[in-house]
Design a protein around this nucleic acid. Structure first.
Lengths: 357, 357
DNA sequence: TTGTAGGCGTTATCAC
DNA sequence: GTGATAACGCCTACAA
């Protein structure tokens, strides 16, 4: 192939001018006579001239491009975050370039290094669960590459962090179940190496504590693959169901697991919330039409993306390197639907209970 | 700010060599003595040298970057497509840069023009419904910018087109409802200016024809905003429900509308499939846990993204400009669940019917 | 084996 | 008012 766009030089040649005169004309420099300027603009418009942004970037030493690192894009939460990122970036005339890690630390490393090599002016990153050593990222950051972490963050890099209030989200979900009268509340969650998993777990534990309920290790299940392997989630659920003292409710700690477990419970013909009540931790927009409608902790995904991008652009465009970084914690929302409401009358089929609202 | 990465010049200076010697060493040119080569590699590794890709791109006249234009990323179908695009691109060492049009033709124009100005080597595009004049895209394409269209395509640009078999998908969904015994089947779909809307409509009509059922104009509803405005969909549904001869089934023609209408039917306490049967046209992975489990036409989203990207990269890397373009139509899959199954016994609550499988 | 020079497209500086 | 020059970082003839 070879897509050849028209350049300043072409215009210069055609109009018998020097490239610099053309450049200045295009930038409406008042050094240039209005006739020349007009001629240049007309010619440029006629031949649909567009400045080559690669050359501009090289010259300016920046790319007007933001890199986004996430595990997957086909996931409610992340695609909503990306939506937020894109909207803010677009308003500030930045491009968004996306790479998926597929939860592999190697791909994470590769993607970040590639992006850092001049491709982007800064990074918005949600870390892999598997990633142990993020020294390379830290080093890039220390060397001046603006980085903002979100969702899956770490304390090992001193930069802005944007997270949902995972603690509060899990706390409220658990407390809600307690208030509904559930006593034996399990927690199925993601890999315990994730920052947000730990926060959600703490919220769950503290709610139990505050309610005077014991924390039972057996009611806590980590899914290392976070739902990538459905069998893992199924097995953890089975372990819970085989306990002599089965749970009467489950607080989910991850997006993908929420739908997975709901599906599995239904396949096992376990009534929700009759046999087991459930709260999800998902941004699925269709939770309302699940069977049963799923109570869920919703993260302010789009806002997280927006804020992360605003902070990043600020870092990029600030003259002096930032030294003070902030930790933003955005409120989650507990949306209560049928799946977590205690049935008042045992004879009514749970599925037939009217939805609130 | 100012993130300064190490350059070839830095290495040259440090090692008392010329930049070209360093460059050749890094490329393992055998012109260079192995000692020098080794020294350069060591120094580069130690200081974490990465070639500046902007400079490389300028020099090579390409960007190793693919532009993707879609209306929204927070949408099952498109995020699955992007997943496919990203996987193929990554394997061929291309970046993916994404822009959303939000169904605005102006943003579409802006994004495409920006991307075409050296930022990307080629485009994967799903067009806006609103877009009337795509001459500018056609011109870019004529000038040699590789473009592959998918999902929402047009005949006005002679290039590769990747679509799902929209006709067959709608045909099968309609025929399935007919076979279940439904006689009065409505069709709620997107803007009729979309290519895939027309194809789905044709499939719906042909199935009716083949089944010997009349096509009733009143049972056909277009939602111009395609579900962006829920009120529009609600109103169209209401119009159907107020007909003297109400439909007993609805074939949905769009992703977002599928969940919207399902939700609305439930809010109106209309039993599915008891009062009205429903087939969706959605890639929602959670359709299985909807209430009721939603029968749906599923598009091979990821495959579409993969194929589009393979074709695009081929166009980009081919020496001579392509002249012969293909129209790929990938098969859809009709997944049958409760929402479209004719209840055998009128006394059984439709929600309690066992799912198949 | 190494170094020099020119160019990719743009822009900023300085000279005319 | 216009043009020449150098630079951004890299690559690659070609020269030494």
């Amino acid at each position: 192939m070879g897509f050849k766009a028209i350049t300043i030089k072409d215009i210069a040649r055609a109009l018998q001018l020097s490239p610099s005169t053309v450049s200045k004309s295009l930038h409406n420099s008042k050094e240039i006579s209005s006739e020349t300027r007009k001629a240049v603009h007309e010619f440029a418009a006629k031949h649909n001239y567009k400045p080559n942004s690669i050359a501009q970037n090289l010259q300016k030493g920046r790319s007007k491009c933001i890199g986004v690192i996430v595990c997957h894009v086909d996931n409610n939460f992340f695609s909503q975050v990306i939506n937020g990122i894109e909207s803010v970036a677009h308003n500030s005339d930045y491009h968004v370039i996306i790479a998926q890690t597929h939860d592999s630390s190697e791909r994470e490393l590769l993607n970040i290094q590639h992006m850092a090599s001049g491709t982007v002016d800064g990074l918005v990153v949600s870390l892999c669960p598997a990633t142990k050593n993020i020294e390379y990222l830290n080093e890039l950051h220390q060397n001046g590459l603006p980085v903002v972490l979100f969702d899956r963050v770490t304390d090992n890099i001193d930069t802005h962090r944007i997270t949902a209030d995972n603690y509060r989200g899990a706390f409220e979900a658990t407390m809600h179940l307690v208030q509904q009268g559930y006593q034996h509340i399990a927690h199925i969650t993601s890999s315990n190496s994730l920052s947000n998993t730990a926060e959600r777990l703490a919220g769950y534990k503290d709610a139990l504590y505050e309610a005077g309920l014991p924390f039972d290790e057996e009611l806590l299940k980590f899914c290392e693959t976070g739902g990538k392997l459905p069998e893992e989630a199924q097995q953890k659920l089975n372990e819970l169901l085989q306990l002599p003292d089965k749970p009467d409710a489950i607080v989910m700690g991850s997006d993908r697991l929420s739908t997975l477990i709901l599906n599995q419970l239904r396949k096992l013909d376990i009534a929700i919330p009759g046999d087991i009540a459930l709260t999800g931790f998902t941004n699925a927009t269709s939770a309302e039409i699940f069977n049963p409608p799923l109570s869920t902790v919703v993260q302010p995904a789009s806002e997280m993306g927006k804020l992360a991008t605003e902070m990043l652009i600020q870092l990029i465009e600030d003259k002096e390197p930032a030294t003070k970084f902030e930790k933003f914690v955005l409120p989650t929302e507990l949306v209560i639907r049928t799946s977590s409401i205690k049935p008042k009358l045992a004879t009514i089929q749970p599925e037939l209970i009217k939805m609130p609202g």
